[in-house]
Amino acid sequence: MKYTVQIVGVGGQGVLLASMVLGNAAMNMGYRVAMSEVHGMAQRGGSVLSTLRFGDDVISPLEAVGSADMIMGFEPAETCRNIHLGNSDTVVLMNLDPVLPSMVAAGFEEYPDVGGLVDSVKRVNGNVVTIDATKIAIEAGKAVAANAVMIGAVAAMKGFPIPKDVLLDALVSQVPEKFRDLNIRAFEMGFSSLQ
């Protein structure tokens, strides 16, 4: 068994935390783990891609284009931008909350209609699951818990090989004590939103 998750989003959205949680969960399952992260520019609002691979005999930190088993998209335009990392069988988790690039905010470029972005992904892939992670996170207590919502949702995705309780344990061990309850709540709500 080998499994690859391509985690895409924007610097500051918690892509690195999510990849750490998934990676630790995979390690705790006894899998070999190889990951690749984007550092440095991440804090400057650019596109961020983190690759997580685990299973038997995994050693390469990168995956071939098209070979992702899952695309975990924190931001709709970034999910679209990276859709070629997957194939027709890839499961796609797509957060619907846009982060406007500075050129869009300043009115120099336009941000496409989110519905249109979802349609364009659904046209080529039949396994798209959309989620409003920020909205759920606000219901759970705070918008910043959107990444915990996303991780909870991953646990509910079709064919994801790591059980929910292992993911939750890994999440709890990665977040500060005082945000523990918030993250658990957000995780559970993310999970049940996909049920």
Binding site: M41, P101, P112
Partner: peptide, 21 residues
Amino acid sequence: EFREPLPRSEVKLPSRPPTLC
């Protein structure tokens, strides 16, 4: 053998270069 990648999105996406905060 690697899987055939999905075609790139036909939607015009805004650029997102790293930028001054």
